[in-house]
Amino acid sequence: MFARLLTALGHSVVSFVVYVGDVVVLAGETISSAFAQKIRWRLFMQQIVEIGLLSQLVVVITGAFTGAVFAAQTYFQFNKLGMGSAVGAVVSVSICRELGPVLTALMVTGRVGASMSAEIGTMKVTEQIDALRALAVHPIDYLVVPRTLAMMVSMPLLVAEAVAIGIAAGYFVAIFLLEVNGTYYMANMVRWTQMRDIIMALTKAGCFALLIVFISCHKGLTSKEGAVGVGKATTEAVVNASLAVLIFNFFLTMGLNIIFPAGYQ
């Protein structure tokens, strides 16, 4: 009984390690292809539209309501201590460092990651990937590289947008709905928010972009036969990429905090 439990555990550890290895190999092949092979700029532009442009609504709403609700909650607590004007600093720093990148990444995973794995998975099960290969086109060059580059460009912009809108929404809620003093609010915010907070947001955006694109493309490329296979691949891509974003975020926060320490110094 105990032995069987241990074996089962061993199997899942091994398959997890193999899975991570596969994704890392895909990442390696993509990077080497991006440098060694010709890049398909037309496909890159299509992906920019797909990822960047069509995510606008999602990112704007995510940023706005996160900033708004976060400002309100912070105010409810801080106001008791007579620190209402400190809300601006808290909102802007935490949106830059955590909420902006993480929530944007989760939304992009749901929208873009899912569609990447579904599209590539469908191509896999309808032999379109085989057709590419048969025509001497490497699927990584054709499918993964343009998506990776487009994600690398789009994600930092989307995160920056979410952060800006979140901060603006927080300001609006604090000043106009909760009647915090605008001058102090701004002064505190500017004093406590620094370049390194913005750099942290953008660094995280780049890292999450890679996590999402490699996990989603990998699931698509290894999708099993049939509509069921594609559905499963898509679900797993979204779940795995979301978890990876949350887990990586913790380590990124700890690591980046050494380089870009938080707070006023």
Binding site: M123, T126, E127, Q128, A131, R133, A134, L135, A136, H138
Partner: peptide
């Protein structure tokens, strides 16, 4: 390897059973 096969594949065409068109 997949990249080395490209040279062979340029010489050999294949028609898939289902057509395998890019949709």
């Amino acid at each position: 390897t997949e990249r080395k096969l490209a040279r062979i594949r340029r010489k050999v065409g294949i028609l898939f059973q289902g057509g395998a068109l890019f949709d």
